[in-house]
Simulated scan of single mutants.
Amino acid sequence: MSKRRDQRMMGRALALARLNHGLTGENPSVGCVILDSHGHIVGEGVTGRGGRPHAEEVALEEAGEAARGGTAYVTLEPCRERSAGGKSCSMKLEEAGIARVVCSVLDPHPVANGGILRLRRAGIRVDIGPGRHAAEGLYRAFFASIN
């Protein structure tokens, strides 16, 4: 994957995240774009109004089997655990067969933090940083609410 493609796809994920910014309750509005193993967009998602479903869930459902071997671009670290129970986004990305995850920023929330570590332990390549500046601006209030 090229640095240019990473920036372009993360820009698209950030645009999705902005769609529901301020409409997701206590949860941040996250954007997710999934490419198949050939680099074609096969799924997109944004956190639902009120905070559910999570962006990764929406994008994975749209992508289906095409996600296997692909790349997920997520504006915020995929959750390690779900506060409401059920499978976390990091677990769902692993089960879908995603080969690589690119995320802008880590999630400081104590329940969500650690999703990247879970993915790496599962053998998934994780790159952090594309779109960091824009994501930090988008999540400023969310980050402040945790500290």
Rank of each mutant, 00 (worst) to 15 (best):
H21P: 09
G45Q: 05
R8C: 09
L16M: 12
G45I: 04
A17Q: 07
R12H: 15
E56V: 02
G31Y: 14
G70D: 01
Y73M: 07
G45S: 07
M10T: 08
P110K: 02
R68W: 13
H54N: 11
T71E: 01
M91K: 11
R118N: 12
R12V: 09
V42Y: 01
S145M: 05
R5K: 13
L60K: 01
A134P: 06
A144Y: 08
I116D: 05
G22R: 06
I98P: 03
F143R: 15
F142S: 06
R100W: 01
N113D: 13
R5Y: 02
L16Y: 11
S83W: 09
G131D: 10
G45K: 05
N147A: 13
E136Y: 07
I34Q: 04
R80A: 08
A135M: 11
A66D: 11
D6S: 13
R132E: 15
L93N: 00
A96H: 01
G129M: 04
I128M: 07
G70T: 01
C32T: 15
G31N: 11
T24E: 10
S90L: 00
G123C: 02
P110S: 04
L93F: 01
V126D: 05
R4M: 11
V105H: 11
R121F: 06
G97C: 00
A141N: 13
G25R: 00
T75G: 12
G70E: 01
V101H: 04
E57R: 14
P53E: 05
C79N: 15
T47I: 14
P53Q: 08
N147V: 12
I41T: 15
L23T: 02
R5C: 03
E56Q: 04
P28Q: 07
Y139K: 01
A63E: 03
D127W: 09
R52F: 11
A122F: 03
N113Q: 14
E44I: 09
V33N: 10
A135K: 10
L23D: 12
I146K: 10
M10Q: 12
G86M: 01
P130N: 08
R140Y: 02
A112M: 05
V111C: 08
G25Y: 08
A134M: 13
L138R: 08
V126L: 00
Y73S: 07
S37T: 12
A67S: 03
S2E: 04
A141V: 15
G115R: 00
G129W: 04
E81C: 09
R121S: 11
E57C: 06
S29Q: 14
R132T: 14
E65H: 08
V58G: 09
V58S: 08
G45R: 06
E81Y: 13
G129Y: 03
R120D: 05
N113F: 11
A55W: 02
R121D: 13
N20T: 14
A13E: 08
P28S: 09
G69N: 00
A122L: 01
R4T: 14
S90M: 00
E57W: 10
A96T: 02
